[in-house]
Amino acid sequence: MGIFDAIFQGFVQGLTEFLPVSSSGHLSLVQYFTGNSGDSGFLFSILLHAGTLIAVCLVFWRTILELFLEFFYMIGDIFRGRFSFSTMPAARRMLLMLIVSTLPLGLMLLFKDAVARFSQDNDIVVEGICFLITGTLLLMSSSCRKGWKNAKNTGIKDALVVGAAQVAATMPGISRSGSTISSGMMMGFEQAYAVSYSFILGIPAVLGAIILEVGDAVEQGTSLPTGVVIAGLLSSALFGILAIKLVQWVVKGNKLKYFGYYTIALGVLTVCLGIFEMVSGHQIQQFFSSL
């Protein structure tokens, strides 16, 4: 893999990580047709996620700092016997709900190897089916009434539903941002809150993936050139910031349905291509890999 290819994959990752179209699904398609599937391709996709993590921290740094400080205030109130669930400030409730939403990810420790194989295999039919799921969720949420829930009144049930959506999004082709934003809006979240909640919720998920998967890759002896890693990180971070701003505008303008149409069309095309590839012996992949 060269630097130009790393920049291109960073571009794909940065845009699709936050646009509700599934970064993992798009990267899986790119890696399939460029011949970069496998352990090194999967490792690189994890590193690109680190770049988009930087983007989230830069855009939402005020909220993240507030939540970080609130964590220590909460610990202090617990030790002083002043903690109250019913009268807690909005930032504390949001922090606790984010923790609840993160808990279902613990289930993925049991299935992470099986999920990883979908990104590394020589087949794209599963990705196509997952794109169809993403599109359906986006169309469903775009027809919801305007929400009323925010950091002040989000409940445990709401947090668990969004957390379950995040677990499903570990499959390549199911958008993490699309599924969590959509599920939040269907649970009655305000549009802006659904976006910020979704993106901040992704921080522990990305960190966990990096810790788990990089460790596995190191054990397997997989490595990438430093220049390729830096190019991919910077590219994904830059385009990630642009994508976050775009999603904020899209959700505010109630335009999620257009991404739903896109992912459904992509899902149909991917399933058809995947079936053709299996029947033809991967002729399209071989053509692009030879370029």
Rank of each mutant, 00 (worst) to 15 (best):
G2F: 00
D5C: 06
Q9M: 11
G10H: 01
V12G: 10
S23Y: 02
H26Q: 13
L27Y: 03
G35M: 07
G35Q: 12
N36Q: 14
G38K: 11
F42L: 13
L43M: 15
F44W: 07
F44M: 12
V59K: 13
W61T: 06
W61R: 03
L65Y: 08
L69T: 08
E70V: 03
F71T: 07
I75S: 07
D77V: 06
I78L: 14
S84R: 15
S84Q: 12
R93T: 11
R93P: 08
M94P: 14
L95M: 12
L95W: 11
L95G: 06
L103T: 11
L103S: 14
L105P: 12
L105F: 14
L109S: 13
A114W: 14
A114E: 15
V115R: 04
R117V: 13
D121E: 15
D121A: 15
D123N: 15
I133A: 06
T136L: 12
S143P: 00
C144M: 11
K146P: 10
K149I: 14
G163I: 03
Q166L: 07
A169E: 02
T170E: 10
S177W: 01
G178M: 01
G178H: 00
S179P: 11
T180D: 09
S182N: 08
S182K: 04
S183Y: 05
M186S: 03
Q191G: 14
Y193C: 04
Y197K: 02
I200N: 03
L207A: 04
L212H: 00
G221D: 12
I230E: 01
L233G: 06
A237M: 15
I244W: 00
W249R: 15
L256T: 01
T263S: 04
I264P: 02
I264G: 04
I264T: 11
G267E: 03
V268C: 09
V268A: 03
L269M: 07
F276W: 12
I284R: 09
